[in-house]
Each structure stands twice: as C-alpha cells, then as structure tokens.
C-alpha cells in the first residue's frame, strides 16, 4: 500500500537535488575561483533507478514474490567536462598572459530550461502522491457505509 508513497517521494527528492544543483550552477555563473583552484565547472546529477533493499528482496523471495525496482536515486554528482568559455578581459585578476579569463561552462539558458523541467517533474510526482493518498483514504472508507 505505501510502496507508491515511497516511490513518489524518491522522485521528489531526486528532482529537489537537481533543483539545488541548478541553483548552485546559476549562483556560480561568474565564479573563477573555487576551493580546488580554477574556474567553477557546471555540476550535473546522475539519476539511476533504485533497486529494492536486500532485506526486502530476500523477504519477497521467501514469500515467492518477485521484487521490482522502486523509485529513483541520485548516484553521483558529476562535473561537466566541456571547455570553459574564454572571455577577453585583461583587467580581471584571473586573466592569463593574453588577457583571456576562463569563465564557467554554465549556460544560463539551458539551466533555466532544466529548472522548468525539474519543477514540472516534481509537480508530476506530487500529483501521483496525492492520487496515492486519495486511494488510501478511499480504501479506509470501505465497509463504513
């Protein structure tokens, strides 16, 4: 009964992490100095289908049921390896000998598009969660009338 609740909330968690990363990318669109030194690199979340817990898998096997995957998880946060944008700005403290500054490989437009996509996917998960909730409440009404 509550399996679908967990699935939808895993989807919401994943989209929220994605949104956090997009916010980080947009906030650092002009950052030329990071902890590792060098220019900020655009970050990307990697989504993967979440497998059942070993306990559940064993339990289902003992009960003769097949266990399916449940929800989504963020396996890692990777950096975009694409080249930095070279901007001519000789006055900048991080400019090289020719006067070019390596600016982050963050594209505001694509970040915005990703943001809308994350927001819509989050909403879709919320809608499913609400449907699950209504179904559970309807099931509680059985036998009351």
């Amino acid at each position: 009964m509550f399996g679908s609740f967990d699935i939808s909330s895993s989807g919401m968690t994943a989209q929220r992490i994605r949104m956090d990363i997009i916010a980080d990318n947009i906030a650092n669109v002009n950052t030329t100095r990071t902890e590792n030194g060098g220019t900020y690199r655009r970050k990307l979340p990697v989504f993967q289908e979440k497998e059942t817990t070993p306990f559940k898998e064993l339990l289902n096997a003992k009960l003769g049921k097949s266990s399916s995957n449940e929800g989504v998880k963020v396996t890692s946060i990777t950096e975009d390896p694409s080249p930095f944008k070279m901007i001519y700005n000789p006055g900048h403290p991080d400019a090289n000998e020719e006067g070019y500054v390596a600016m982050p490989n963050v594209d505001i437009t694509s970040e915005m598009v990703d943001m809308i996509s994350a927001s819509r996917a989050y909403e879709a998960n919320v809608t499913v969660l609400n449907t699950s909730k209504n179904m559970a409440l309807k099931a509680l009404e059985i036998g009351r009338g």
């Binding site: 679908s4 895993s10 989807g11 994943a14 929800g71 998960n125 499913v128």
Partner: peptide, 12 residues
C-alpha cells in the same frame, strides 16, 4: 499505481 509511480519517478 505502484508501477506508474515508478515510471513518473524515473522520468529523467
């Protein structure tokens, strides 16, 4: 419903 939730959670 559980399967459909899983599909939507994995939309990306």
């Amino acid at each position: 419903h559980k399967m459909l939730s899983n599909n939507i959670a994995n939309v990306d």
